[in-house]
């Protein structure tokens, strides 16, 4: 009887072992698939100009060289990087600050009808951006803002996006009221409570929003494409790289150089993601599950 049981558990164990090995095998194959774009870019960027653009087509370079990186890193690319960092720097501070102030108003201070007003704010999330982008272009054009960085920065002072407000509100709901009340008794005013108590306690979600804002600005293509058009001086990386490396078959379009730019532009968001992966994935799912 005991032996029979042992036999069963042994065969079960063997079955489980097989299942685990098969799982790992499938995972490895899928991993190759998902990481392929990175390997492809990396290897191509280390080829010489001629090799990247001639037959036979190779995946791994015959000789590793960094010439592509040297050619690519010129004054204009650094200019684009500088512009991007300007926009990133501004938005990474403006977005969480503005969003958390609004969230504080909706979630804690409150006012009569605050829930209804917040409903309207959330509803704007559903609006397709095209309906707004063309008239905004016309308006910004009248203001003389097209070709400057104003259209990709100033609007973020105003609330920093409904999703961010919503996320901070969810977080604020978890902060016990007593902390706030005792500060009130000590005579702190609303702004004092916000800066000294609420803001520090909200740091985890604020950090998430900062990282997310960085990734969003770094990646944003359509905004700069419409609002920065015609002025290469203020191009961000996304749009600068697009015009510089995707045009006709000029000297600049060697695949190794394109991929070198690719590698350079993928490094910052990848590092950020690897550092903040837990917060990022948590934040992404928080918005969808609770919303």
């Amino acid at each position: 009887m005991i032996q029979a049981k042992r036999m069963i558990s042994r065969s079960k164990l063997a079955k489980r072992g097989i299942k685990i090995s098969v799982s790992y095998l499938v995972m490895a194959v899928l991993l190759l698939f998902f990481l392929f774009p990175f390997f492809f870019m990396f290897f191509k960027s280390l080829m010489s100009d001629a090799e990247s653009y001639s037959l036979p087509i190779r995946f791994i370079p015959s000789k590793f060289t960094v010439t592509a990186y040297k050619t690519v890193l010129d004054a204009s690319l650094l200019r684009y990087l500088g512009n991007t960092l300007l926009v990133v720097g501004f938005n990474v501070i403006a977005v969480p600050l503005s969003a958390s102030l609004c969230a504080y108003g909706f979630a804690r201070v409150k006012f009569e009808g605050s829930n209804k007003v917040f409903g309207i704010v959330l509803a704007t999330m559903m609006l397709p951006s095209v309906v707004v982008q063309i008239p905004l272009y016309v308006i910004f054009n009248m203001l003389g803002w097209i070709g400057t960085l104003w259209p990709v920065t100033i609007p973020n002072i105003f609330g920093g996006g409904a999703v961010n407000i919503f996320l901070i509100m969810q977080f604020m709901r978890g902060i016990p009221k007593e902390i706030e009340n005792s500060a009130k008794i000590d005579g702190a005013n609303v702004m004092g409570i916000y800066f000294r108590i609420i803001m520090p306690l909200c740091m985890p979600i604020v950090l998430f929003i900062m990282v997310n804002t960085f990734l969003g600005v770094w990646n944003d293509f359509m905004g700069p494409l419409i609002y920065l058009q015609g002025n290469p001086d203020w191009y961000t990386l996304a749009i600068g790289v697009y015009y510089k490396f995707m045009g006709g078959l000029s000297q600049r379009n060697y695949p190794n150089q394109q991929m070198a730019v690719g590698v350079l532009m993928v490094i910052p968001p990848s590092i950020l993601f690897l550092i903040f992966q837990n917060q990022l994935i948590e934040g992404v799912t928080m918005g969808s599950i609770k919303g």
């Binding site: 899928l30 991993l31 998902f34 990481l35 774009p37 990175f38 492809f40 870019m41 191509k44 990734l215 770094w218 990646n219 293509f221 990386l237 996304a238 749009i239 790289v241 697009y242 490396f245 995707m246 695949p255 394109q258 991929m259 730019v261 690719g262 532009m265 993928v266 968001p269 990848s270 950020l272 993601f273 992966q277 994935i281």
Partner: peptide, 19 residues
């Protein structure tokens, strides 16, 4: 690691696959 390709910027995505 499966999530990682999501952080590739749109422009680079285009350059990469066009290539």
């Amino acid at each position: 690691l499966y999530y990682l390709p999501v952080v590739i910027p749109t422009v680079i995505y285009g350059l990469l696959w066009r290539n």
